[in-house]
Design a protein around this nucleic acid. Structure first.
Lengths: 116, 116
DNA sequence: ACACTTGATTGCTATGTAGCGATATAGTGA
DNA sequence: TCACTATATCGCTACATAGCAATCAAGTGT
């Protein structure tokens, strides 16, 4: 039983780890409104295509996004819209910590997509 | 605005990063029922006290737990019970992925503390 | 002051990974 | 087949951090 829990903890930790890089959060944010090609995501992120591809693979491995090749392009989309609940919860936590600073609060909510 | 969002993303990523290590999840799990001393947590985790102390500091820096020294002991407790909502959400996601394997599902739910 | 207990910090090694440029792979069209 | 486009992978460097043993720091009781 403890061994099972160890493996379960490792899976959960891996899930959180996938969300622990700003670039990957930016990618997820870019997928809020629907699927996108790798090229589009690369433009949005402003870094190398190789890097975007690598992080997309990490998100896909963690089960957060789904890959679908159509023609010469590859489209990614979020696997479970509930993923954003996580981000919104965290934004709420952090916003509470910085509640005294309205600028920060606004920035967090905007990032979470709550006030758009 | 973009700069604010960059900083916001970094904060959110840091929050997730704090949750991305099995040992830290185990510590949070041990704090479900209330505050605990470092010594108790060290026993539960079965690793060095130095390591536990370091990870507790990381959780505290991320604002996930609160520190309170009383006498020669130091007590830690969760800062926001809503933190466990995050873990439960993730457990749900993962359980859905492994829904075909009842053993895994049971292990995940037990780890989340949902079925105890 | 002294020993004792508890927790934090330091110094270290090993491992993981973000980032880039270069290259490989796969699909499309001439 | 050959060029062209889009994405993935490789080789690499730089940096972060998990883990331990050893030490430091702070509080307690004698």
């Amino acid at each position: 039983m403890n061994q099972f829990n160890d493996q379960a903890l490792q899976h959960i930790a891996q899930y959180f780890k996938a969300l622990s890089e700003p670039l990957r959060l930016r990618l997820l944010n870019a997928l809020r409104e629907g699927e996108r090609k790798v090229g589009e995501l690369t433009e949005i992120c402003g870094c190398s295509q190789a890097n975007v591809s690598k992080h997309l693979a990490i998100l896909a491995d963690a089960g957060l996004i789904l890959r679908e090749a159509r023609g010469t392009s590859v489209f990614y989309r979020v696997a479970d819209p509930a993923t954003y609940e996580l981000c919104d919860l965290v934004c709420g936590h952090i916003a509470r910590r910085f509640a005294s600073d309205d600028g920060w609060r606004t920035a967090f909510l905007a990032t979470a997509g709550k006030s758009e």
